[in-house]
């Protein structure tokens, strides 16, 4: 029996230097690169997770965090099925910045190996995640701690989303979402479906689902 294939697009967002690329590279190629250069534009990764009878193909857009690429970000989250919001637990600024994003699946606090320099408490990040109906993780791209869980969780929720819909066209983020211009969840059109009570996962559902292919 062949597995059902689910294709999903994921976008990784967050301030420069929080370790977005490190997380993705650590997950996909087990590359323990201590000092990765700043990403230019955006990098595109693919990976596959097999869970039960599903093959989840993840297409990951790893975006550059620098300010000058900000205007390009809508291009990447448009048609994305899920977003990872990454912040650095040793940088308050990076945590505050992700709060300007309102559409989330996972909030990821990176650099958990630097807990000694922590300035963003776990509880606070969890509260924020709950408030936007997202899920919170802490990871360390250096030690690989927690990274597997993030992607596994993503795959699980995508399968859940698929089963709930039974529609090959997965719900995607609305074109209109924006960064700082969007003060609250209310400004987003479309309805929110709660996928899993335990996991507090929320997914914005575009009224008219769009195909995820480019």
């Amino acid at each position: 029996m062949s597995n059902t294939i689910i294709e999903a697009k994921i976008v990784v967002l967050g301030m420069t230097g929080v370790g977005k690329t490190s997380i993705v590279v650590q997950y996909i190629s087990h590359g323990n690169n201590q000092r990765i250069n700043p990403t230019i534009g955006a990098s595109f990764f693919t990976c596959q997770i097999t869970l039960d009878s599903y093959n989840v193909k993840l297409q990951v857009w790893d975006t550059a965090g620098q300010e000058r690429f900000r205007s390009m970000t809508p291009m990447y989250y448009r048609n994305a099925n899920a977003a990872l919001l990454v912040y650095d637990i040793t940088s308050r600024e990076s945590f505050e910045e992700i709060q300007s994003w309102v559409v989330v699946l996972c909030v990821v606090g990176n650099k958990s190996d630097l807990a000694a320099e922590r300035v963003v408490p776990v509880e606070e990040a969890q509260d924020f995640a709950i408030s936007i109906k997202a899920f919170h993780f802490e990871t360390s791209a250096t030690t690989r701690k927690g990274i597997e869980e993030v992607f596994l969780h993503l795959a699980k929720s995508l399968i859940f989303l698929y089963e709930a819909n039974r529609d090959p066209n997965m719900p995607v983020y609305n074109d209109d979402i924006n960064t700082c211009d969007m003060p609250s969840v209310n400004t987003i059109k479309g309805k929110t479906i709660t996928l899993d009570k335990e996991d507090h996962i929320a997914q914005q559902h575009h009224a008219k689902s769009r195909c995820c292919s480019s």
Binding site: T21, I40, F44
Partner: peptide
Amino acid sequence: ATESFKAAESWTP
């Protein structure tokens, strides 16, 4: 100058 191009396909202005 950009090592990260080696890791994945990139798209940049």
